[in-house]
Design a protein around this nucleic acid. Structure first.
Lengths: 133, 133
DNA sequence: CGCACTTGGTTTCCAACGGAAACCTGAAAC
DNA sequence: GTTTCAGGTTTCCGTTGGAAACCAAGTGCG
């Protein structure tokens, strides 16, 4: 079976999907949910730096795309648990490979950045590196 | 060998890397470059919808991180070719898995979206789906 | 009773980012 | 001299993101 989808075309619906999953926060959420169903505030505390607004938005969109499920338990206060759906689990391997590539290659990247910045300084002007803003 | 990096922590340098590669445009560029070295305007034309500004910015950042290389040939007009570095090639498998997961799972996602939107309509209010803005 | 505290959000405000389009540099070709 | 090409940068403006405040419902505490 072949797909007539083309990720390089902005008219292709796959682009919208890429837009959703190729996102720092979505990736971290999916990766974290791979460890098991998790409540809203636990996600918020574990994924340092995410704001409530963005967490809530991202969860809603991931739910709409069928990657995660949301279950509210009528405890007090209400408990809301998010979990991967089978479709979402389907993606976890790729997500994990991706998210943890950074951990494995951090040294090489740091070296590359230092070399680049040294070169830039020699050749004057200089792209403003994000870190120095 | 263990890494004391933690992708969930916003103080971890890996978060900055994730920030860079977990980006729609960066992914598409890396995936496209996996096919071979490519000139600026070819990238711009192939990756539909990217703006020159963002393409140029993203290329610069990917170069700084050592994932791609930039080579200018003194032709007329000047030709600039971008290519994956070994470090970048190292990442292409994960990128491809990721970028093309969308193509393989498009049907399931579309179904999930339709089901979600139908449920939303029944239960009134409704999260505004991106498509209807 | 009245206040604090919990979860799971939404709202508000402002700064940062992204996209569209114009502009720029340099050289050749018309 | 002005049109064309590559490869960008700049400008302008609308959308998005983060920080923090606010909110509802219910329980515990004094």
């Amino acid at each position: 079976m072949k797909f007539d989808y083309d990720i390089y075309s902005d008219r292709c619906p796959t682009r919208a999907v890429l837009d959703r999953i190729a996102d720092k926060w979505a990736l971290l959420i999916l990766d974290r949910l791979a460890l098991g169903p998790t409540r809203f505030n636990v996600l918020r505390r574990d994924i340092t730096g995410i704001s409530q607004k963005v967490l809530s938005q991202t969860l809603k969109l991931l739910e709409r795309d069928g990657l995660i499920s949301r279950t509210a338990y009528p405890t007090v206060p209400v408990t809301v648990e998010y979990a991967l759906t089978p479709l979402g689990e389907n993606l976890t391997e790729a997500v994990a490979a991706f998210a943890h590539w950074a951990e494995s290659n951090m040294e090489a990247i740091r070296k590359a950045q230092l070399a680049y910045d040294r070169r830039e300084r020699r050749s004057d002007a200089g792209v403003t590196p994000k870190a120095s803003r």
